[in-house]
């Protein structure tokens, strides 16, 4: 069935994004992994909206809101990365112990 195929693709994308989110040490790569996660969620939403709710497409509306929030998150996250790089001279996630006890 087509819905299962799309959902499996979204699940695999989510898992790859989660792997990158946990393992990568570069802060920009962490942000890219978060974008992958949000894309997987969007694919799920649109697949559900196409196959289970075709008359009133609420999933697509929700996907648009998710895209908006993702754009805002990327802007603020990259600004934070730039500020940290300017102050600490690194973007390694292991060295961000500013808020750690």
């Amino acid at each position: 069935m087509m819905l299962n195929a799309f959902l499996v693709v979204a699940a695999a994308l989510f898992c790859i994004g989660f792997y990158g989110l946990v393992t990568s040490r570069n802060a920009v790569r962490v942000l890219m992994s978060i974008e992958l996660l949000l894309n997987a969620v969007n694919l799920n939403l649109i697949a559900f909206s196409n196959f289970l709710d075709p008359n009133n497409i609420r999933g697509q509306l929700f996907a648009i809101f998710v895209i908006t929030v993702a754009a805002a998150e990327a802007a603020v996250g990259l600004a934070i990365v730039l500020a940290i790089y300017r102050n600490r001279d690194t973007i390694d996630m292991e060295n961000f112990n500013l808020l750690k006890w």
Binding site: V28, L31, N39, N42, S49, N50, I67, A75, L78
Partner: peptide
């Protein structure tokens, strides 16, 4: 998946804005 508006928004926002922003951050950092 019959979602052409979301596809257009995806190309515009993600490829056009977010990806360029990430490339900028990589070049700067």
């Amino acid at each position: 998946l019959n979602a052409d508006f979301v596809a257009a928004a995806q190309v515009l926002i993600y490829v056009g804005a977010v990806n360029v922003l990430i490339l900028f951050a990589i070049m700067l950092v």
